[in-house]
Protein backbone atom coordinates (compact mmCIF):
# COMPACT_ATOMS: atom_id res chain seq x y z
CA UNK A 1 0.00 0.00 0.00
CA UNK A 2 2.98 2.33 0.08
CA UNK A 3 2.30 3.14 -3.57
CA UNK A 4 -1.13 4.38 -2.62
CA UNK A 5 0.07 7.94 -2.40
CA UNK A 6 3.47 7.84 -4.01
CA UNK A 7 2.40 10.61 -6.34
CA UNK A 8 2.51 13.07 -3.43
CA UNK A 9 6.28 13.06 -3.46
CA UNK A 10 6.56 13.03 -7.20
CA UNK A 11 7.47 16.38 -8.79
CA UNK A 12 5.48 15.32 -11.84
CA UNK A 13 2.35 15.10 -9.76
CA UNK A 14 2.51 18.50 -8.09
CA UNK A 15 0.29 20.38 -10.57
CA UNK A 16 -2.33 17.67 -10.27
CA UNK A 17 -2.13 17.78 -6.48
CA UNK A 18 -2.75 21.53 -6.49
CA UNK A 19 -5.87 20.93 -8.54
CA UNK A 20 -7.12 18.41 -6.00
CA UNK A 21 -6.66 20.81 -3.11
CA UNK A 22 -8.40 23.54 -5.01
CA UNK A 23 -11.46 21.36 -5.46
CA UNK A 24 -11.78 20.42 -1.81
CA UNK A 25 -13.34 17.10 -0.95
CA UNK A 26 -15.30 16.44 -4.10
CA UNK A 27 -12.57 14.88 -6.15
CA UNK A 28 -13.08 13.43 -9.56
CA UNK A 29 -12.75 9.74 -10.12
CA UNK A 30 -9.65 10.43 -12.14
CA UNK A 31 -8.03 12.27 -9.25
CA UNK A 32 -8.65 9.56 -6.71
CA UNK A 33 -7.60 6.89 -9.16
CA UNK A 34 -4.29 8.69 -9.37
CA UNK A 35 -4.11 8.57 -5.58
CA UNK A 36 -4.30 4.83 -5.59
CA UNK A 37 -1.80 4.64 -8.39
CA UNK A 38 -4.14 3.14 -10.94
CA UNK A 39 -5.02 5.48 -13.75
CA UNK A 40 -6.84 2.68 -15.57
CA UNK A 41 -9.60 2.99 -12.98
CA UNK A 42 -9.95 6.71 -13.51
CA UNK A 43 -13.14 6.42 -15.49
CA UNK A 44 -14.90 4.23 -12.98
CA UNK A 45 -13.65 5.25 -9.56
CA UNK A 46 -16.32 7.86 -8.89
CA UNK A 47 -16.15 10.87 -6.63
CA UNK A 48 -14.65 10.89 -3.16
CA UNK A 49 -17.07 12.60 -0.81
CA UNK A 50 -17.09 14.07 2.66
CA UNK A 51 -18.56 10.76 3.78
CA UNK A 52 -15.51 9.02 2.32
CA UNK A 53 -13.21 11.19 4.39
CA UNK A 54 -15.26 10.51 7.53
CA UNK A 55 -15.11 6.76 6.84
CA UNK A 56 -11.35 6.93 6.32
CA UNK A 57 -10.96 8.90 9.54
CA UNK A 58 -12.99 6.38 11.52
CA UNK A 59 -10.82 3.63 10.08
CA UNK A 60 -7.72 5.62 10.99
CA UNK A 61 -8.94 5.99 14.57
CA UNK A 62 -9.42 2.24 14.83
CA UNK A 63 -6.00 1.55 13.29
CA UNK A 64 -4.31 3.90 15.76
CA UNK A 65 -6.05 2.10 18.59
CA UNK A 66 -4.94 -1.27 17.21
CA UNK A 67 -1.32 -0.04 17.19
CA UNK A 68 -1.70 0.94 20.84
CA UNK A 69 -3.36 -2.39 21.68
CA UNK A 70 -0.48 -4.39 20.20
CA UNK A 71 1.93 -2.17 22.12
CA UNK A 72 0.10 -2.92 25.36
CA UNK A 73 0.08 -6.61 24.48
CA UNK A 74 3.78 -6.61 23.75
CA UNK A 75 4.55 -4.78 27.00
CA UNK A 76 2.58 -7.15 29.21
CA UNK A 77 5.55 -9.51 29.18
CA UNK A 78 3.08 -12.32 28.53
CA UNK A 79 3.99 -12.87 24.87
CA UNK A 80 6.83 -15.28 24.23
CA UNK A 81 8.87 -15.50 21.04
CA UNK A 82 7.95 -16.21 18.27
CA UNK A 83 4.45 -14.98 19.18
CA UNK A 84 5.89 -11.66 20.30
CA UNK A 85 7.57 -11.20 16.92
CA UNK A 86 4.31 -11.96 15.20
CA UNK A 87 2.47 -9.35 17.28
CA UNK A 88 5.11 -6.76 16.45
CA UNK A 89 4.82 -7.63 12.76
CA UNK A 90 1.05 -7.21 12.88
CA UNK A 91 1.46 -3.92 14.72
CA UNK A 92 3.74 -2.83 11.89
CA UNK A 93 1.00 -3.59 9.38
CA UNK A 94 -1.43 -1.44 11.34
CA UNK A 95 1.15 1.35 11.35
CA UNK A 96 1.34 1.09 7.56
CA UNK A 97 -2.45 1.17 7.29
CA UNK A 98 -2.61 4.21 9.55
CA UNK A 99 0.09 6.07 7.61
CA UNK A 100 -1.66 5.40 4.31
CA UNK A 101 -5.07 6.38 5.62
CA UNK A 102 -3.67 9.53 7.18
CA UNK A 103 -1.97 10.65 3.98
CA UNK A 104 -5.07 9.88 1.95
CA UNK A 105 -7.32 11.88 4.28
CA UNK A 106 -4.96 14.84 4.13
CA UNK A 107 -4.71 14.64 0.36
CA UNK A 108 -8.50 14.63 0.11
CA UNK A 109 -8.56 17.85 2.11
CA UNK A 110 -9.57 16.33 5.44
CA UNK A 111 -7.88 16.46 8.82
CA UNK A 112 -6.56 13.07 9.94
CA UNK A 113 -7.43 12.18 13.52
CA UNK A 114 -4.46 11.92 15.85
CA UNK A 115 -3.72 9.06 18.20
CA UNK A 116 -5.34 9.52 21.60
CA UNK A 117 -3.10 10.37 24.51
CA UNK A 118 -4.56 7.42 26.36
CA UNK A 119 -6.51 4.33 25.36
CA UNK A 120 -8.55 2.06 27.58
CA UNK A 121 -7.97 -1.68 27.26
CA UNK A 122 -9.22 -4.53 29.43
CA UNK A 123 -5.75 -5.13 30.87
CA UNK A 124 -7.24 -6.61 34.05
CA UNK A 125 -8.46 -9.52 31.92
CA UNK A 126 -5.10 -10.16 30.23
CA UNK A 127 -3.46 -12.75 32.46
CA UNK A 128 -1.81 -15.04 29.93
CA UNK A 129 -0.44 -15.15 26.41
CA UNK A 130 -3.69 -16.77 25.30
CA UNK A 131 -5.73 -13.92 26.82
CA UNK A 132 -3.66 -11.38 24.87
CA UNK A 133 -4.00 -13.33 21.62
CA UNK A 134 -7.76 -13.77 22.05
CA UNK A 135 -8.11 -10.05 22.73
CA UNK A 136 -6.07 -9.23 19.63
CA UNK A 137 -8.15 -11.70 17.61
CA UNK A 138 -11.37 -10.00 18.73
CA UNK A 139 -10.02 -6.63 17.54
CA UNK A 140 -8.91 -8.07 14.21
CA UNK A 141 -12.27 -9.76 13.64
CA UNK A 142 -13.99 -6.48 14.44
CA UNK A 143 -11.70 -4.69 12.01
CA UNK A 144 -12.57 -7.15 9.25
CA UNK A 145 -16.28 -6.50 9.88
CA UNK A 146 -15.74 -2.75 10.01
CA UNK A 147 -13.95 -2.66 6.64
CA UNK A 148 -16.53 -5.04 5.19
CA UNK A 149 -19.23 -2.61 6.30
CA UNK A 150 -17.33 0.41 4.98
CA UNK A 151 -16.49 -0.88 1.53
CA UNK A 152 -20.04 -0.65 0.12
CA UNK A 153 -20.54 2.92 1.30
CA UNK A 154 -17.45 4.53 -0.18
CA UNK A 155 -18.44 6.95 -2.90
CA UNK A 156 -15.17 6.27 -4.65
CA UNK A 157 -14.59 2.68 -5.67
CA UNK A 158 -10.81 2.99 -5.63
CA UNK A 159 -10.96 3.87 -1.95
CA UNK A 160 -13.20 0.84 -1.49
CA UNK A 161 -10.59 -1.27 -3.23
CA UNK A 162 -7.86 0.08 -0.95
CA UNK A 163 -10.05 -0.70 2.08
CA UNK A 164 -10.57 -4.23 0.77
CA UNK A 165 -6.82 -4.63 0.60
CA UNK A 166 -6.55 -3.70 4.29
CA UNK A 167 -9.46 -6.04 5.09
CA UNK A 168 -7.56 -8.93 3.53
CA UNK A 169 -4.52 -8.24 5.68
CA UNK A 170 -6.55 -8.01 8.87
CA UNK A 171 -8.42 -11.21 8.04
CA UNK A 172 -5.06 -12.96 7.82
CA UNK A 173 -4.11 -11.56 11.24
CA UNK A 174 -7.39 -12.85 12.64
CA UNK A 175 -6.88 -16.33 11.18
CA UNK A 176 -3.33 -16.63 12.48
CA UNK A 177 -4.32 -15.44 15.95
CA UNK A 178 -7.17 -17.97 16.01
CA UNK A 179 -4.74 -20.67 14.97
CA UNK A 180 -2.31 -19.62 17.70
CA UNK A 181 -4.91 -20.23 20.41
CA UNK A 182 -5.92 -23.59 18.95
CA UNK A 183 -9.09 -22.52 17.17
CA UNK A 184 -9.99 -23.36 13.59
CA UNK A 185 -8.16 -20.56 11.77
CA UNK A 186 -10.82 -19.98 9.15
CA UNK A 187 -14.17 -20.71 10.77
CA UNK A 188 -16.40 -20.16 7.76
CA UNK A 189 -16.50 -19.53 4.04
CA UNK A 190 -17.67 -15.95 4.50
CA UNK A 191 -16.91 -13.11 6.91
CA UNK A 192 -19.63 -10.83 8.20
Amino acid sequence: MSSFLDFIDSPLALPARRRFIGHGLMLSGAAVALLVGNEALAATGGKATEDDVRILNTALGAELEAIAAYQVGAETGLLQKPVLDLAVTFQGHHKEHAATLSKTIATLGGKPVAAKAKYTFPTDKLKSQEDVLRFAASLEKGAVSAYLGAIPVFGNRDLAKAAASILGDEAMHWAILRNAVGEVPVPSAFVS
Partner: peptide
Protein backbone atom coordinates in the same frame (compact mmCIF):
# COMPACT_ATOMS: atom_id res chain seq x y z
CA UNK B 1 -21.73 -7.87 18.42
CA UNK B 2 -18.25 -9.25 17.67
CA UNK B 3 -18.56 -7.32 14.38
CA UNK B 4 -18.68 -4.10 16.37
CA UNK B 5 -15.47 -4.72 18.31
CA UNK B 6 -13.18 -2.76 16.03
CA UNK B 7 -14.75 0.42 17.36
CA UNK B 8 -16.98 -0.30 20.34
CA UNK B 9 -16.85 -1.83 23.82
CA UNK B 10 -19.54 -2.17 26.43
CA UNK B 11 -17.89 -0.40 29.31
CA UNK B 12 -15.55 2.17 27.81
CA UNK B 13 -15.27 4.55 24.89
CA UNK B 14 -13.18 3.63 21.89
CA UNK B 15 -13.45 4.89 18.30
Amino acid sequence: YSRCLACHALAYDRT
